[in-house]
Simulated assay, not measured.
Amino acid sequence: MSILATTPESQAFGLKAKIYDDDLQSHGYVAKHTKDLAVNPEAYLAFEALISAITQNMDVRRYELITLAAAQALGSAHCRLAHGLKALRAIDEEELVQIARDYHNAGLSPAEVAMMEYAERLSTDAVAMTDTDTLELRDHGFTDREILDITLAAAARNFMSRTLQAIAAEVDVPTKLSPQLRAALLTPLAQYGAAAKPRHRDA
């Protein structure tokens, strides 16, 4: 559990109140990790602005696939669960369960698999990456702008996931996730040594 002293919802004002309200509108409650990050509301909003800039030419499906792959490689229960829910905006649950369990055998296109492998590689051993990695994306038809945006999206997930892990933020389980999808999202994390135990949160 994070040691950070957070602001209760009833006492939030200004930027913190806006951040809390965004969570309420999206999830029906303010996530514990949102309260932790809102200790520095300017940084939180700057991150949101960065994601907006990265995804302005990227569809939701692509962004969420990249995010789920990076979060899996990082062993991030926080981001796997949060973005598992968000991914339902663009991917039906049956397909998403298969992707979450093993995206290599989920019927994805070769380009999508290559993109997710790239996000995993960036998240586990970026120092060993070479132009061979980016050329592989180009061979699958991605433009230079798309390659950069894929890289930025995966790198941004590293920033957020590692921040939440470092401050020991409590993991909220969105109640809108079905038990089947929740299990599919969390089970692969075992191979990466994820230790965070989710706390169920009622909406």
Rank of each mutant, 00 (worst) to 15 (best):
T6H: 01
T55C: 11
M129R: 04
A100V: 05
I51Y: 10
G28D: 09
T67W: 00
A119C: 06
L108C: 08
H104G: 12
H33Q: 03
N40C: 07
Y29R: 05
E146V: 07
A90V: 06
A155D: 13
D22F: 15
A5D: 10
A183G: 10
A87L: 07
D92S: 06
S2G: 03
E136C: 04
N57C: 06
R121H: 09
A43E: 09
A12L: 07
K86D: 01
Y29S: 04
M160R: 06
L148I: 15
A43L: 14
E95M: 12
D139Y: 02
T34L: 01
L24E: 11
A87W: 09
M1I: 06
A46K: 14
D172N: 05
A194S: 15
L152C: 13
D172S: 02
V39C: 10
F142Y: 15
V39E: 10
E64N: 14
D139M: 05
A156V: 06
E146A: 13
Q11S: 08
R145A: 15
L4M: 01
S10K: 06
P8Q: 00
T34M: 01
P41C: 02
L137F: 07
E146N: 07
K18D: 14
L81A: 05
R62C: 13
R182M: 11
S2M: 02
T143S: 15
H140D: 04
L152D: 02
T134A: 08
F142G: 03
E42W: 11
D22R: 14
L135R: 12
H78S: 08
T67K: 12
P179D: 12
D149M: 11
R199A: 12
P174E: 13
R80M: 12
H140E: 10
P188H: 13
F13W: 10
L24D: 02
A82I: 14
I91G: 02
Y44T: 11
H104C: 08
T163P: 00
D149R: 13
Y63P: 00
Q72K: 14
S178V: 03
A111W: 07
A111K: 08
A114H: 07
L122N: 06
I150F: 07
D92H: 14
T130N: 06
A53C: 11
A106G: 09
M116N: 04
T163W: 00
A49P: 00
P188R: 12
V39A: 15
N40A: 10
T6R: 01
A119F: 04
A190C: 03
H78I: 10
D202S: 14
A106D: 04
L74C: 10
A43R: 14
Q72G: 03
D125P: 00
F159I: 11
A69D: 08
L37V: 05
Y103E: 04
L135N: 14
T187S: 09
G14L: 08
L15D: 15
A12K: 14
S76T: 03
E94Y: 06
L189F: 06
L88P: 08
R61G: 04
L4G: 00
A73T: 01
I66G: 01
V39H: 13
T151Q: 12
I150E: 06
V97W: 02
E120A: 13
K197D: 09
E48Y: 11
M1K: 13
A153S: 15
A53I: 10
R121Q: 13
I3P: 01
N57R: 14
R201V: 13
G84P: 03
F47V: 09
E93C: 12
K176D: 15
K197F: 01
A71I: 04
S161Q: 03
T132Q: 11
E117V: 02
A46M: 09
M115C: 05
V113H: 02
